[in-house]
């Protein structure tokens, strides 16, 4: 049986909001370590990997591993019945055919309970190989979102070039081209505004603007985002959570 209590429903609401356009049906794998989700988008170009560790819940109990098959459109409908500040409890029995979602307001004088029907989902699981990334860029998530937004109207692709001196985002389309360069910077007062580059060798990757912009739906979950790049390999876009992470992988565009 699973029982997980989150002090603020907003975390779970934001996580589901962030992935529901990429993924429709998926299994939430519940173990004693927490809740995990791994799913590819329908065109098999990107992968979402979510981990909410048990210590991020104010109460967590999972006696037996469970795979909860969930339609995220339906889950969204139910999560919208609760307020961001509500305490959220997720509950499912070992052979349950539904997930119980409970909301309790902070004054503890309003409780609501919804049941979401579960589905049987035969989902392929992918092995994510250990990758030696050539570059790791940590930057404000709002800055990454702004770049992707600005460039979406110019080109279907964004090229990310990373050197020790900085990271350059370039786009080229029918109407013209554009680039944004960010140099590493640090501010002790506002570490969330820093840009940090760890580089073992210069690297360049071209990626779909549409997918990168989709990942930016997670912006509200974390002030910083980390991009990890290796030549001719999928990019890893990671939003750290207070207990866990939301990761997106996207296969690159390569010359024919």
């Amino acid at each position: 049986m699973l029982e997980g209590k989150l002090e603020q429903a907003s975390l779970f609401k934001k996580v589901v909001e962030a992935v529901r356009e990429l993924v429709q049906d998926c299994n939430f794998d519940c173990t004693e370590n927490g809740l995990a989700l791994q799913a590819m988008d329908t065109s098999h170009v990107s992968l979402v990997s979510l981990l909410l560790t048990a210590d991020g819940f104010s109460e967590y109990r999972c006696d037996r591993n469970l795979a909860l098959g969930i339609n995220l459109v339906s889950l969204t409908k139910i999560l919208r019945c609760g307020n961001n500040e509500d305490i959220l409890t997720l509950e499912a029995g070992d052979s349950a055919d539904s997930l119980v979602v409970r909301f309790e307001n902070t004054q503890q004088d309003r409780m609501s309970e919804y049941a979401l029907k579960l589905m049987d989902i035969d989902q392929e699981h992918l092995g994510i190989p250990e990758t030696e990334y050539a570059a790791s860029i940590t930057m404000p998530s709002t800055e990454f979102q702004r770049i992707c937004r600005d460039m979406q109207s110019i080109s279907e692709s964004i090229t990310i070039d990373c050197t020790k001196g900085g990271v350059k985002f370039t786009c080229e389309g029918d109407i013209g081209s554009g680039s944004v360069t960010l140099k590493p910077n640090s501010s002790a007062d506002k570490p969330e505004l820093c840009t940090k580059i760890d580089l073992s060798e210069p690297v360049s990757l071209t990626l779909s603007t549409k997918y990168l912009l989709n990942f930016c739906k997670a912006t509200g979950l974390s002030q910083q985002v980390t991009l990890k790049l290796a030549d001719e390999n999928p990019i890893l876009v990671e939003y750290p959570l207070s207990a866990g992470h939301l990761r997106f992988y996207l296969a690159p565009k390569l010359d024919e």
């Binding site: 590819m40 065109s43 098999h44 170009v45 990107s46 992968l47 392929e124 699981h125 992918l126 092995g127 994510i128 190989p129 692709s157 071209t206 779909s208 390999n233 999928p234 992988y249 996207l250 296969a251 690159p252 565009k253 390569l254 010359d255 024919e256």
Partner: peptide
């Protein structure tokens, strides 16, 4: 011309 790769060519199915 650049072509979008699929993820399965990098990440094996378990």
């Amino acid at each position: 011309i650049q072509k979008q790769r699929r993820l399965l060519s990098y990440f094996p199915e378990i």
